[in-house]
Amino acid sequence: MNANELKKVIDTAAAGREEGYRKLFSEFGGIVFSLISRMVGDTADAEELTQDVFLKLFGTLQHYQQQGVGFAAWIRRIAYNKAIDHLRRTRPNTISIDDVPGFQLSVENEENVNVSELKIEQLMQAIANLPEKDRTLLHLFYIDDLPLKEIAFITSTDSTTLAMRLSRIRQRLKKQLASTL
């Protein structure tokens, strides 16, 4: 959907017309569900939170103004905040892998394990043990391939701080992986 079409759809939905709502959900529902699902890890919760995001979105569309980022970043920000709020209410704080002394992935029969597969497995394990916000940040940057400016908007963080956080996460992962091999 190009910018002109999107503007028309937003205006239609902001006017309370059902076809505008449907088009916005059709276009952005997958993006919202994917982000929330990765963050909360439960499909049922992700579906409910996705509905909540769109209910909030439809109630605030008349206030939408492009703020140097696109509509997709704006809706991702709503989804990100909704997922963070949910996690704060439902999950205990996670523990960083840095706090686990002597962390090392064990392999029973090392001679049969491909070293690169082991490295990938260790990386995935280290990422899985990161706090939720760090995992989401990595995913938005490396998987969704969003620019820092958009991620900064989504997470309500300035770009410089965000770049520093990404750097520190990468350094921590690199250190963890170096100590396990």
Rank of each mutant, 00 (worst) to 15 (best):
K133D: 14
D85M: 05
T50D: 00
P101Y: 07
Y80T: 00
Y64H: 04
D145Q: 10
T136Y: 02
V100P: 00
I97P: 01
A163F: 15
M39S: 06
A46Y: 06
L105P: 01
G30M: 06
F28A: 06
Y80F: 15
F58I: 01
L24W: 07
L130A: 05
Q62S: 13
S156M: 14
I95K: 08
N93M: 13
L162R: 03
P147Q: 06
A83F: 01
L162Q: 06
F103E: 01
I120M: 12
K23H: 09
R91F: 12
I127T: 03
A152K: 03
F141Q: 01
N81F: 13
P92I: 08
R89K: 11
P147Y: 05
Q66Y: 13
Q62A: 14
H139D: 03
L146I: 07
E132V: 10
V40D: 01
I84G: 08
N93F: 15
I97D: 01
D45T: 07
L138M: 10
S159G: 13
D99A: 09
Q65K: 15
A83W: 06
G59Y: 03
G102R: 05
R38C: 08
S159R: 14
E121A: 06
L146D: 07
G29E: 06
A46N: 03
P92W: 02
L49M: 04
F33Y: 14
D98F: 02
D134C: 07
P92G: 08
R89N: 10
L118K: 12
H63C: 03
P131Y: 05
E48G: 08
V40L: 09
K82M: 10
Q51A: 12
L130W: 08
V115W: 13
V113D: 13
A72W: 02
L123M: 15
N114K: 15
V113G: 07
N129P: 03
T155A: 15
S159Y: 12
Y64W: 09
I84V: 15
E108H: 08
D42Q: 07
M124V: 07
R76Y: 07
V32G: 02
E111M: 07
F25N: 05
E18D: 14
E18R: 10
Q51Y: 07
T160W: 14
L87V: 02
A163G: 14
L57W: 11
F58W: 05
G68S: 09
D134G: 04
S156R: 10
Q51R: 12
F33T: 02
N81R: 13
A73V: 01
I143F: 11
F71L: 05
H86W: 05
G70T: 09
S156H: 15
V69I: 12
Q62H: 13
F141M: 03
L137M: 14
F33D: 09
T90K: 00
T136L: 05
W74Y: 14
R135S: 05
A44E: 15
E150S: 11
F141E: 02
L61S: 03
R91W: 10
G29Y: 10
G68M: 06
E47G: 09
P147I: 11
R77Q: 15
L55Y: 11
G70F: 06
L130Y: 04
L130H: 06
H63N: 11
E18Y: 13
S26L: 09
E132S: 11
N114S: 14
N81G: 09
F141P: 00
I151H: 04
Q66P: 00
D134W: 09
E121T: 11
E19T: 12
